[in-house]
Structure formats: C-alpha cells, structure tokens
C-alpha cells in the first residue's frame, strides 16, 4: 500500500501563492481558511539578509498528534497513511487544532461561503455583490468543484474543522494533488515513499531534506529540499 509524501523544492518555489489559491478552487475552501498556506521570515542585517518563503500544508504525519487528540476518531490515518478527517464524526472540540504543531487545521465558526449570500458589493453600483453573481450564475456557490465531494464533504459545514486531504479524490483517480499539478515552478513533487525508485525518493536521496519541527516527534511527511 502506498505511503504518500510531498517534496517541496524551495529553490524552485517562487512564492507566487498559486498553491494556496488553486487548493481553494479544487477543495471549495472558504475565505479565511487555507489548506495550503505559507510563512515568510526575514532574518539578518543588511547586507546579509535572508528572506524565506516556505509553503505549508498538513504534513500527514506518521505519528499524527491530531489523530491521538481527537476524542471521536474523526481524525484518522487511512490505508495510504494519509491523515484524513470524517466530518460526520467531528464534534468541533478543536483538540486537533491544539495538538497540531503546524497550525494547519481550521475551524468553521460560521456558515461557509457567506460571500455568495452577501448583498454588499465592494464598490456600490460599481461591482457585483457575491449574491448577485451567484444569482446570475444560477449556482448557490459559484466555482464549486463537485469532484471534491467524492471522498470528503464538498463543503464542510459550520461547527467542524477541516484540513488538507492530500487531494485524496484525485489520488483515487491516479492524479497528483492539485497544488502539485498547478505549481507553475514545478516546485512540488508527490509520491509514494515506499517506491524506492520514485521521484520523491530520488529527490530526497539527491538533495537531503528538512522537515518542520522534527523535534516534536510527529514524523511529518512533507519534506523541504534545497532550503535557504
């Protein structure tokens, strides 16, 4: 059985944020919530300054703290060692958010996609409101991707958490996660850690790697190569 991991080449990453945005399109992620995100950090003093842009996402940890913390087994490891979430079991206690050392789990504190129900426009009489757009398109949520609903709730309701699923709906069809597919710089590679000749293992062998917070013992499966 596959053991999926992701490699992010920080020398190839240009910090465009395409992964952050395309992930939202693919997974119907609401405003204010990011399954794929990034942090930036500037260190040093001119002229010796270092700027880092590091993409982040659920690390699908081997030893996932969120799975241990969840009181209802809503967070679980599947047979591909992905860390997934069952919205029907989630009670919204947010223990997983507290336990996750990477802050990549989000809580739906209000009804999602309220933008499309909001009649206020950014520029009154100048731009269309979300509500108008939705009505003209005849869709409750424009740009909704129905494919997402094949393995997870298409839209996660109020009162539960949500997180990256490694695009398990795409993996099921033999496709790569959408952030990998859409990265214009080809900085992301996803694959099976158990395949010794796969691209993931080749990259890790060639460059070595770093992981976020390896000291916390979660054994994250997002590997950063060619770091700053």
């Amino acid at each position: 059985m596959a053991r999926y991991a992701m490699v992010i080449d920080l020398h190839k990453c240009v910090g465009c944020g395409a992964c952050d945005i395309t992930c939202k399109n693919e997974n119907n992620v609401d405003r204010g919530i990011f399954w794929a995100h990034h942090f930036t950090r500037t260190t040093g003093v001119f002229p010796n300054v270092k700027y880092e842009h590091v993409p982040t996402m659920c690390n699908h940890c081997n030893n996932a703290a969120c799975v241990k913390a969840c009181p209802t087994k809503a967070m679980y490891k599947d047979d591909k060692r992905l860390t997934l979430h069952d919205p029907k079991k989630c009670i919204g206690c947010k223990s997983c958010m507290q336990a996750c050392p990477y802050d990549v789990i989000s809580f739906n504190s209000k009804e999602p996609h309220g933008f499309w129900r909001d009649a206020n426009s950014v520029i009154p009489d100048g731009t269309a409101s979300g509500k108008e757009t939705a009505e003209k398109l005849g869709q409750k949520i424009p740009y909704y991707n129905p494919e997402r609903a094949t393995t997870y709730a298409g839209i996660r309701p109020k009162g539960i958490v949500e997180k990256c699923t490694f695009c398990d709906h795409r993996l099921a069809k033999g496709e790569e996660p959408y952030c990998v597919f859409s990265c214009p710089a080809g900085a992301r590679t996803a694959g099976d850690l158990d395949n010794p000749t796969g691209q993931v293992n080749l990259l890790l062998a060639k460059y070595g790697h770093k992981q976020l917070k390896p000291h916390v013992g979660t054994e994250p499966k997002v590997y950063y190569i060619r770091y700053y």
């Binding site: 799975v67 241990k68 913390a69 969840c70 009181p71 209802t72 087994k73 809503a74 079991k89 989630c90 009670i91 919204g92 206690c93 947010k94 223990s95 809580f107 739906n108 504190s109 109020k158 009162g159 539960i160 958490v161």
Partner: peptide
C-alpha cells in the same frame, strides 16, 4: 463545541489515545 449535539459520540466513537 461546534457540534454539541454529537457530544455523546465521544462514548461510542471512543478513542483510547485521546485524553478528551
């Protein structure tokens, strides 16, 4: 809780690893 009506599911979906 986001879904208080599911509180009792902590009993039948019991996770022995979870302190909660």
């Amino acid at each position: 809780l986001g879904r208080p009506e599911r509180f009792l599911s902590t009993l039948y979906n019991f996770n022995p690893q979870s302190v909660t």
